[in-house]
């Protein structure tokens, strides 16, 4: 916690406006466009990841302090785990026995 004075929090404001804009864009893409579901899902996913990155870098200052690089490694590791868990589970549970639906 350095005592150095900081000016107007531009990064916070920009982050906030961007996150509102990205949310509205996501709603627009989902409701008012005619892309296939597949494309829409990819676009929505990319927009969500952008928002998460905004929160991480502009609000949570992930790279701040001595541990900046460690935090980034930690987050990347957790995201890889998240992808393994989500896509692994879907693949395992819907490709064979569960073709019931």
């Amino acid at each position: 916690m350095s005592a150095k004075s900081q000016g107007f929090p531009w990064n916070l404001l920009v982050g906030f406006i961007l996150s509102i804009a990205l949310t509205l864009l996501a709603v627009f893409v989902a409701i008012y466009t005619d892309f296939s579901n597949h494309v829409i899902l990819w676009v929505l996913g990319v927009l969500a990841i952008f928002q998460a990155i905004i929160q991480l870098f502009m609000f949570m200052h992930v790279t701040e302090g001595k541990e900046g690089i460690i935090n980034v490694i930690n987050m990347v590791n957790s995201i890889i785990l998240a992808l393994i868990i989500v896509f692994g589970s879907i693949w395992v549970l819907t490709s064979g026995h569960a073709s019931l639906h």
Binding site: A26, V27, A30, I31, L44, G45, L47, A48, A52
Partner: peptide, 16 residues
Amino acid sequence: VVWIFIFTFVYLKGMV
């Protein structure tokens, strides 16, 4: 952040 993913992959995906 978690909510953004809920909003996207639960609600928007569910609506579409």
